[in-house]
């Protein structure tokens, strides 16, 4: 409704977003009336049972799916009004998306998967490769850079997907179960890395079944049957990593 006054620090806003899949008898309500706002430096975790609408919310927030009703605003841009080219540019430049099923390109090596979005955005090949190697280093995959996805373990593929989402300093990171295939140490490594990106000024949504990982967020939102039922906020707004590390 209110198309005015989106705070400069607000990266993402969902206004009364509802999503129905299918029609008539078989219609499924995946989300109903969800409001959500993400600012710079803010990480929000989404928890909820299987089928509660978490992935739907994330794909809508990332402009991959258009909601049945409600608005999605990224950096002040109403996605409903965006032209396809604008939408593609937002996805390439602003958004880092970690898919629940990783979504790697099988014909490309790990480092090529990570550098692909940068090259599509016009980066020089060598510079994109360097940035991709840095991102793989953050998830401790230096020694697998030239392997193809099929030759990587599930958790390694997941880390490639994470590196691809954070490479090049995206402002908004949307991660669907990014630690689902990881052991707890590696999961924590990923969360620390994500958290430090957020503390540097990005924003993010983290979908997770794991309360231990959700606890790295500033806010935790619980979904049930497509609605927000509970919300837990950190008491003060100071950064998680501000005091050290």
């Amino acid at each position: 409704m209110s198309r005015d006054r989106i705070g400069a620090s607000e990266l993402l806003r969902l206004d009364a977003v509802s999503m129905h899949y299918g029609a008539g008898e078989n219609s499924v309500t995946a989300l109903s009336g969800v409001d959500l706002s993400i600012k710079r430096g803010e990480l929000v975790a989404i928890m909820g049972a299987s089928g509660s609408g978490k992935s739907t919310l994330l794909t809508i927030a990332g402009g991959l799916v258009t909601p049945t009703s409600g608005e999605v605003i990224i950096h002040g841009q109403y996605l409903r009004d965006a032209k396809p080219a604008q939408l593609a540019a937002i996805r390439r430049r602003t958004l880092g998306f970690v898919f629940q099923d990783f979504n790697l390109v099988p014909a490309l090596t790990a480092v090529e998967n990570v550098s692909l979005p940068l090259e599509l955005d016009g980066w020089k090949r060598s510079k994109a490769r360097r940035a991709a190697l840095d991102a793989l280093h953050l998830v401790e995959l230096d020694d697998r850079a030239d392997h193809f996805p099929d030759d990587l373990s599930g958790g390694q593929q997941q880390r490639v997907a994470i590196a691809r989402a954070v490479v090049g300093g995206r402002a908004l990171i949307l991660a669907d179960e990014p630690t689902g295939a990881l052991d707890s140490q590696t999961g924590e490594l990923v969360l620390r890395m994500l958290r430090s990106r957020i503390d540097e000024g990005a924003g993010g949504i983290l979908v997770t079944h794991d309360a231990r990982h959700a606890a790295w967020a500033d806010r935790i939102v619980f979904l049930r049957d497509g609605r927000v039922v509970d919300e837990s906020r950190r008491d003060d707004a100071s950064s998680l990593l501000a005091a050290g590390a």
């Binding site: 309360a211 231990r212 959700a214 606890a215 790295w216 967020a217 935790i220 837990s232 950190r234 008491d235 998680l240």
Partner: peptide, 9 residues
């Protein structure tokens, strides 16, 4: 969850 957030912090 709130105490979990505090511990994590």
């Amino acid at each position: 969850i709130r105490s979990l957030q505090e511990l994590t912090r």
